[in-house]
Design a protein around this nucleic acid. Structure first.
Length: 733
DNA sequence: GACCTGCTGCGGGGTG
């Protein structure tokens, strides 16, 4: 380390300078250099934005540890919060290597850490605490009276993978926890967010703290060269007669498309490390099975492993270790489990089958490829469309999937991605936090709870009236009750729920069955899965027979069998942004061939444009085909849902199908829909509660069931309805 | 055609 190249190196503690020198690092990274004076100063919040494994942790901790070592009266405490336990384990090893010589204790704290370690930390809360939001919640609930002492010497709050928290229930919980730590000691503490280079940094800063100054440190020169290929695959039409020579049933038709993709992947990916994203756990199973089957048939060692959230830790680690190993090449077929910060090194290429859930997700995925100096990031994508014969849906004729994927790749290349939704009310998390405050303090008055959580806390959008309505609902659900002195306490049901360990997570989860083969746990599947003894399943890349289902221990016993198909997992979808739909429309209107498309994909684009022109969709927003009416808004899902809700209020029965709002079998004509839209232009906007009166399935978050009807609908609308976009579109219709 | 994340305290039994 030549310290003359660095302006701020000498500001670090000499022991840390020595440690850096020992590592034989040539220079400090740009973000590390920039962060030193700002973090040492302790005057503002900071966001450090750089890709995974680019030295963000060191950028934060070199100056943090320097400051702690230089303090009079002990080291004080730094709290590091991570969304993943795996990340805490990683960081524990890395930080311990650095902190051992500095005599700074590092404390890991999550569900897998022994109680004795936690106890020792509580006796002397000093050094660096590495913890999850859920475990921090547990500290507040179970050690409420000690909280003030624990955090009394708090110096810094560090949040890793900040972007993964923004816009969710868990993010709202995190904001509350940050606020509660500061509230307990009645002073502000510098917050440091570590984030991937995604989205809008000002939004991220506002999420980290709703007002105040925040320095943003962004890594420069991270734009690597990208190579992109789009391959089209045409799926044969379904033939109903099975023993017709070319005929096969629907499932075989789908399998034929999978086979055509796998044979290409087998030839292309073997011999290097890659990640394949087919968008669902069932597809992960299908592709892994087909690919490893090809290895068996060709008598070569298997290079293909599955990775998704339902697989056991052991099976996932097998895939991760294989990727990291230098002995042999590995391709992992995965869901977005491998989008997160787990260290798997750099891979040669990314395969995306079908359009990704979002551009942000595609960008994160592609960030895994070509990370070493001089390497190119490679994206191979596939679009599968049905053959153009017989009666087809209008969306098939428009090749909508192909255009969605092209639009997303286009936006990715421009550097755009979806901003997170920071304004969700997340009243579900407010319910959790009211119950948690009661645990922490042994009871709390309504005005105190309102001040801490709403007036001064992260639920500022909630006014007093709403808060009282919420408390009333919680009383009626027996979650809370009020004693003679007006203090809120847990109710009969609240007591039970707040004292169970499942209380600490802000998000909900289904009950699941363990899938076990002999003594080995393969993973879990959702409880509602209609699995029966004697079924044949495809799981963890292999096929099994279900021998026994034990409802008592929630276990599915399986053994090897030669066939099987993937079980059905839970379905929950992503939301397409308006910018993506607008870009799709532009692509339909354009005549430029996408340069990254192969011959078949170019043909699909041509067919889509021909249908678009035939239906005259450049000018027409509504069309009738037989007894069905189709409304094209080219808006995102949240705005389309608002348009549909408004039309439902007018007596129509709209059905949202991807980019189009359909009316079928209801007798409604295009003229009827137009008349309704004209009427809506003249009418004032109805209240959310009135608008959503007929809507179903609005319970999304963990505690939504405990809200009053009107608050539940407000909370839902804050996330899933874009009324202003919908209104603007209707006014311009 | 559809993701992911997380979890306490305590008692009982085994091992060093």
């Amino acid at each position: 380390m030549s310290s003359n190249e660095s302006k701020f190196f000498t500001l670090l503690h000499t022991q840390i300078q020595y440690w850096i020198w020992q590592q034989a690092w040539n220079d400090l990274r740009d973000v590390q250099e920039q962060s030193i004076p700002i973090i040492l100063d302790q005057k503002t919040d900071v966001i450090i934005s750089a890709s995974t494994a680019s030295g963000k942790t060191e950028a934060a901790f070199f100056p943090i540890l320097t400051k702690m070592l230089g303090r009079d009266g002990g080291l004080g405490l730094t709290v590091y919060i991570s969304p993943l336990t795996a990340l805490i384990n990683d960081q524990f090893s890395r930080l311990t290597a650095l902190c051992e010589n500095l005599h700074i204790p590092v404390w890991p704290w999550h569900g897998g850490v022994s109680a004795s370690v936690k106890k020792r930390f509580l006796q002397n809360p000093e050094g660096v605490l590495l913890i999850t939001p859920e475990s921090l919640e547990a500290v507040f609930c179970n050690h409420g009276f000690q909280v003030k002492t624990i955090f009394s010497d708090l110096q810094y709050l560090v949040v890793d993978e900040l972007h993964s928290f923004i816009g969710s229930e868990r993010g709202k919980q995190l904001q509350t926890l940050l606020h509660l730590m500061e509230h307990s000691i009645q002073r502000k503490v510098p917050r440091i967010g570590l984030s991937a280079t995604l989205g809008d940094m000002n939004l991220a800063a506002q999420f980290l703290r709703d007002s105040g100054s925040c320095e943003i440190i962004e890594a420069k020169g991270e734009n690597h060269e990208v190579k992109i290929l789009l391959k089209g695959v045409i799926q044969k039409a379904v033939v109903s007669v099975r023993d017709d020579e070319s005929g096969c049933d629907e499932e075989d038709v789908e399998l034929a498309a999978v086979r055509s993709i796998t044979s290409y992947l087998y030839k292309t990916l073997r011999g290097s490390n890659n990640l394949v994203f087919p968008n669902s756990r069932a597809k992960v199973e299908l592709y892994t099975y087909q690919l490893s089957n090809l290895c068996t048939i060709n008598q070569v060692p298997n290079e293909f492993y599955p990775h998704h959230g339902s697989l056991s830790k052991e099976i996932r680690e097998e895939a991760e270790l294989s990727l990291k190993s230098k002995e042999h090449s590995t391709t992992v077929i995965c869901t977005n489990t491998l989008e997160l910060g787990i260290d798997i090194g750099s891979v040669k290429s990314i395969v995306q089958i079908g359009s990704p859930p979002s551009v942000a997700s595609l960008r994160q995925r592609l960030g895994r490829s070509g990370r070493r100096r001089g390497e190119v990031a490679i994206l191979r994508s596939f679009t599968v469309e049905q053959e153009l014969t017989g009666q087809l849906h209008i969306l098939t004729e428009l090749r909508v999937g192909t255009f969605e994927l092209c639009a997303m790749i286009d936006l990715l290349l421009e550097g755009w991605c979806e901003p997170p939704k920071p304004n969700g009310l997340h009243l579900s998390t407010l319910v959790q936090q009211i119950l948690a405050l009661i645990s922490e303090h042994g009871g709390i008055t309504a005005p105190d709870a309102f001040h801490i959580l709403c007036k001064d806390g992260p639920f500022k959008a909630i006014e007093k009236g709403d808060f009282l309505e919420l408390l009333k609902a919680l009383v009626s659900k027996k979650l809370i009750e009020q004693d003679g002195a007006g203090v809120l306490l847990h109710g009969e049901k609240g007591e039970k729920m707040a004292n169970h360990y499942s209380f600490y997570a802000a998000f909900s989860s289904e009950e699941e069955y363990r899938v076990v083969s002999g003594s080995r746990t393969l993973g879990t599947i959702p409880i509602q899965n209609s699995l029966q003894t004697g079924d044949f399943i495809l799981f963890a890349g292999k096929t099994w027979r279900v021998n026994e289902i034990d409802d008592e221990s929630k276990t599915v016993m399986v053994s090897f069998h030669k066939t099987g198909r993937p079980p059905t997992f839970n379905n929950q979808g992503g939301y397409i942004h308006t910018t993506v739909r607008q870009r799709m429309k532009e692509l339909y209107l354009s005549s430029i061939e996408p340069s990254f498309a192969d011959g078949v994909a170019k043909q699909l684009v041509k067919e889509g444009r021909e249908s678009f022109a035939r239906f005259d969709l450049g000018l027409r927003k509504i069309m009738q085909k037989g007894s069905s009416v189709y409304l094209f808004t080219w808006l995102g899902d949240a705005a389309n849902e608002a348009v549909a809700a408004l039309l439902r209020r007018q007596g129509l029965s709209p059905y949202i199908n991807g980019p189009v709002i359909e009316f079928f079998g209801t007798g409604a004509t295009a003229d009827d829909v137009i008349a309704c839209l004209n009427r809506l232009q003249k009418n004032p906007m109805p209240d959310i509660e009135v608008l959503l009166a007929e809507s179903k399935n609005l319970l999304k978050e963990k505690w939504d069931w405990a809200l009053s009807d009107s608050l539940m609908k407000k909370s839902y609308a804050s996330l899933y309805l874009d009324l202003s976009e919908a209104k603007m579109w209707i006014d311009n219709f």
